[in-house]
Structure formats: structure tokens, C-alpha cells
Design a protein around this nucleic acid. Structure first.
Length: 332
DNA sequence: GTCATGTAGTCGATCGTCGT
DNA sequence: ACGACGATCGACTACATGAC
């Protein structure tokens, strides 16, 4: 029985131009592709654009429609698009200073906003100094910051710490909304959480690229990836940023948010207030609330476009609000 | 408009370290 | 012991966007 034709995107090695080609079999697709790109059928193969895997008939049948493919003529090879990008980057960076200078010259006379943006983005991308860490090696990065900051990582740490302190402040500020009879208990929980926060240095490690891998949110070079909206597993736009790269990225990074999956103000803090009020002799599991408020268990780093300020409609896990009763007595 | 979600920055008090 | 200095930290201000 003949397979129904499915559409694919086919390009050659030499040019990025893509053609829409439909076929039901690998053989059929190859034939049409060769005609389009004027390649001999003998010795030509098709492979995945993404990683260069050569197609077999059975692999072909499993491909989703619109998969991007590269048609290889005899003797040609394709190692995947990564090599494409890397070739481009290598070509650019070997003439980096010259390219930047040329782009700057063009930009001074450029009036069209679209071209202005392209040039500015190019300059921006090429004038990064990602690896520089200390102030003397990248003075521009520190412009506008307090003089006490001497290296990039310590500033990034500070910015994370101050976010955490802000959360803590908000928890403390809620005490006026706590039932008067429960305020002492609430204060007790605040103190425990504050001590814990202090002992882990306000989780400043999340933004610090010099931290060990398990502790930081970024790569060792300082790249952060958007973790996507609270109700998704990934970022649909693949947002990423390296605030260590230049001053502009540093400033831009401040618009990225640590978003509480279970919302701090709508859910966690009110639940904590309720828990200390109606504990019925049970011990409030402050560590659970600590996790929700201050740790990556409940925090996602998101690009502002992935920050949904709408109600999340998530509530705390009722089974974790109180400590489990002790099964056996402690021996002192 | 108000309140919620976030953010950065300034100011001043306090703490800790270092050198005299 | 004392002062200088930087780091730390809370209180405060100001800003943006979204929901209602």
C-alpha cells in the first residue's frame, strides 16, 4: 500500500534556502529533492538538519511532518546545525574588533529603526566580556553600581540576597494581619526562618556563577535560562541571558523574576498565618514554609514575558503544614 | 484606582576587621 | 582601646504590569 505524502523542509549544504517537498517514501523525497537542487540521484543522501543523522527508510517513516532536512550530494557531509552556528561565531569572533568598529560607524548614520536595532544588537553581542570577573577587567560593567562591589559574582549574589530579604520582609510585615493571639507563634516562625536564611547566606548562591553547580541557577559562564511560566515545564521562547556579559545585560537581568509557583502573598503567607492560629497543639512545619518562600523548590527564574501575574490558584500541601507527631520519645 | 505580583536604589544604624 | 572603613541589613522610596 502506498504511503500518503508528508511535507518536509529540504535545503542543500551550500545555501540556507529551504524548499517544501512532500513525499511518502524516502526514495521519493530524495528524487524530488535532487531534481530541485540539481544534484545527481546516485550518491545523494538525506540527513537531519539538526544533527546530521542520515535517514533510512524506516527512520524516515517516523519523522514528523515539516522536519528540516539537508540533501547531501555525492561526497558532501553535514554535521548538524551546531556546526553552522559555530562556524558563524568563529568567523565573527576572529574579526571581532573590526566588526564592532564597522558596525559602530554604520550605526552613527543609521536612521531606520530596524537597521539601528540590528546594528546595536550586533555590537551588544560582540562587545561582551563574559569571562572578566573583577572590576579592573571590565569597568563598564560596574558603572552605576556602588563602589563596594569589586567583582561581578559578589554583585550578583547581593542582588539575589536582596530579593530574598524582600521576601522575608514581606513575611514579617504580614504580622499585623495575623490574629493577635497567634502573633507570638508567628514571630517564632519568622525568627526560625530568618536564622535559617542567614545561615545559608540568603541563598545568594542562586545567582553566583562561582558557586558549585548544584547551588547555582546559571552555568559556570553565567548563563541563565528562563524556566518558563509557573504552569509549564519549559520556556516556550527559550529565553536566556548572561548578566555577567555586559552592563546592559546586567540591567536587563533585573527585569527577570523569581516567581513563586505557589504564590507567596496569595497562598503561602496566609496559610502560614492560619497554621499558627489553628495549630491545635501541633507544631508548625516551618521548614516547609521556608522551602516555599525561599528555595528553588517553589521558585522559578523567569523572563518578564513568562512572568504571569495572574492568580496561580495553587495552594500549599495540607499534609505538610504541621510536623508529623513524634513516633518515639527523644532520649536526652 | 487599588492591590497584587515583582524589581532597584538610597539612607542610616550596626557589626566586624584592621592598623595605630 | 580607639577610630576608619567596608559589609550587612532593614526601612523606605519608586517603578512596571496585571486583575478586578
Amino acid at each position: 500500500m502506498a504511503e500518503p505524502p508528508r511535507p518536509f523542509r529540504v535545503r542543500g549544504v551550500g545555501s540556507p534556502q529551504k524548499f517544501g517537498v512532500a513525499a511518502g517514501t524516502l526514495r521519493g523525497l530524495l528524487r524530488k529533492g535532487c531534481r530541485l537542487l540539481q544534484l545527481p540521484l546516485a550518491g545523494s543522501r538525506l540527513c537531519l538538519y539538526e544533527d546530521g543523522t542520515e535517514l533510512t527508510e524506516s527512520y524516515f517513516r517516523a519523522l514528523p511532518p515539516q522536519t528540516e532536512l539537508v540533501l547531501l550530494g555525492p561526497g558532501q557531509s553535514w554535521r548538524g546545525c551546531a556546526s553552522d552556528i559555530e562556524r558563524l561565531l568563529a568567523a565573527l569572533s576572529s574579526h571581532r574588533d573590526a566588526v564592532v568598529e564597522a558596525a559602530r560607524k554604520l550605526l552613527t548614520d543609521e536612521r531606520a529603526p530596524r537597521r539601528q536595532k540590528l546594528l546595536a544588537d550586533l555590537i551588544h553581542n560582540l562587545s561582551e566580556n563574559i569571562l572578566a570577573e573583577d572590576k579592573e577587567d571590565d569597568k563598564k560593567w560596574f558603572e552605576g553600581l556602588e563602589s563596594r562591589f569589586k567583582n561581578k559574582s559578589s554583585y550578583m549574589r547581593h542582588s539575589c540576597e536582596s530579593r530574598m530579604r524582600g521576601y522575608m520582609r514581606e513575611v514579617s510585615g504580614f504580622i499585623s494581619n495575623v490574629h493577635p493571639a497567634a502573633r507570638d507563634a508567628y514571630r517564632g516562625v519568622i525568627d526560625l526562618m530568618a536564622d535559617k536564611l542567614k545561615s545559608v547566606k540568603y541563598n545568594g548562591c542562586y545567582f553566583d556563577r562561582t558557586e558549585e553547580e548544584a547551588a547555582r541557577l546559571c552555568t559556570v559562564e553565567g548563563w541563565f535560562s528562563c524556566q518558563g511560566p509557573f504552569d509549564r515545564d519549559d520556556c516556550p521562547c527559550k529565553h536566556s541571558i548572561n548578566p555577567y556579559s555586559n552592563r546592559e545585560s546586567r540591567i536587563l537581568f533585573s527585569t527577570w523574576n523569581l516567581d513563586h509557583i505557589i504564590e507567596k502573598k496569595r497562598a503561602v503567607v496566609p496559610e502560614l498565618a492560619e497554621a499558627v492560629k489553628t495549630h491545635d497543639g501541633r507544631e508548625v512545619n516551618w521548614e516547609y514554609f521556608y522551602q516555599l518562600l525561599f528555595t528553588l523548590d517553589n521558585l522559578k527564574l523567569v523572563h518578564i514575558a513568562c512572568h504571569k501575574k495572574t492568580t496561580h490558584n495553587l495552594s500549599c500541601d495540607k499534609t505538610k503544614i504541621y510536623r508529623k507527631r513524634k513516633q518515639n520519645h527523644e532520649i536526652s
